[in-house]
């Protein structure tokens, strides 16, 4: 175990030495990988922010149950009884047609109704759910539509559902982008390692003559690919971080115009770690494929 650690530490030092020996090339590779990785990483972060924003703007999800004009008090009580029996409701309240009219007048829309002699608004129940699951909203509202005395059910979650679907689509696009750019990263590392193997050809031959196993020869290249991935991942994080800083102001202004308070967040520790670890794994993969293919040729 000690020897294994020693050999790995030597291979790591050798890989760092090779990277440090060509600083410009290392920097360029890290930048190319970083920019490629920043696209899916930034896209993921943006979608995450939008999802948080959607939850913040929608507040507590509600369903409005409008009663039939002809519904009498017995029917209203029956609806109330059914609502009390529903386990998924957090709360509900009755809004009478008079109260609804008063609310409308106080909102500044009273003039709209000034020419109408009779109050056209129906009695209603405003229902709050325990969960913001769009599926639950759908199921519950479908049941409520069939209750006697209920004329119309208005689902406040419709736009959330649409947004949720859009975020889902966005996530799929980001995943596809990540897969494509991940492949690009593997190809970049593959090529870099191929050039490294050509550069180190003499050392590889000499090491083989001295009794080096294939594993011994491959080890520094694996570290080289992984380290290149780590540097690329760090550059990607830097790009995303700066991007968030640059966009935070304009996004907050747009959100403010819609009456929402929005602050774009930087990637958290977990996301940052996942980005760097994925980049390292992709670098390792590119190195592994390249080493397997090209070492046989030396």
């Amino acid at each position: 175990m000690r020897n294994w650690l020693y050999l790995h530490s030597r291979a790591l030092a050798q890989a760092l030495e090779r990277l440090g020996g060509q600083p410009f090339g290392t920097l360029l590779s890290a930048l190319v990988m970083g920019v490629a990785l920043a696209l899916p990483a930034g896209g993921y972060l943006l979608l995450d922010n939008i999802a948080v924003l959607a939850r913040g703007v929608s507040g507590t999800p509600e369903i409005s149950l409008f009663l039939d004009d002809k519904a009498d008090s017995a029917q209203a009580e029956a609806v109330q009884g059914k609502l009390q029996a529903e386990p998924d409701l957090a709360s509900f309240r009755f809004v009478s047609r008079d109260e609804a009219l008063r609310q409308l007048e106080s909102s500044g829309l009273g003039d709209v109704l000034s020419g109408i002699a009779v109050n056209p608004l129906p009695d209603a129940f405003v229902v709050t759910l325990r969960s913001d699951d769009p599926e639950l909203f759908e199921a519950l509202s479908a049941r409520m539509r069939n209750w006697p005395g209920v004329a119309h059910v208005q689902l406040d979650s419709a736009w959330i559902k649409r947004l949720s679907a859009l975020i889902g689509l966005g996530r799929t696009v980001v995943l596809m982008l990540a897969a494509l750019l991940g492949l690009a990263l593997v190809i970049i590392t593959f090529n870099t390692i191929r050039l490294q193997i050509l550069t180190q050809k003499n050392e590889i031959e000499v090491s083989r003559l001295l009794g080096a196993t294939d594993r011994f020869i491959r080890r520094p290249f694996y570290w080289f690919g992984s380290l290149q991935g780590v540097f690329g991942g760090l550059v990607a994080l830097g790009v995303v971080w700066i991007g968030v800083d640059v966009l935070a102001g304009p996004v907050a202004k747009v959100a403010e115009s819609y009456g929402a308070l929005v602050a774009l967040s930087h990637p958290g520790w977990l996301e940052s770690l996942a980005t760097v670890a994925s980049a390292a794994a992709l670098g390792w993969l590119g190195a592994a494929i390249s080493v397997r293919r090209h070492l046989a040729e030396t």
């Binding site: 020693y6 050999l7 003499n202 050392e203 000499v206 003559l209 001295l210 009794g211 080096a212 011994f216």
Partner: peptide
């Protein structure tokens, strides 16, 4: 093995060249 050409690694010191077989062999 000693070959006609020394086959030393020219980017490493004399010490590191001689050390290489020992590293390969896993010497402490």
């Amino acid at each position: 093995m000693v070959l006609q050409e020394s086959r030393l690694l020219f980017d490493r010191s004399v010490y590191d060249n001689i050390l290489l077989p020992l590293i390969i062999n896993g010497h402490p």
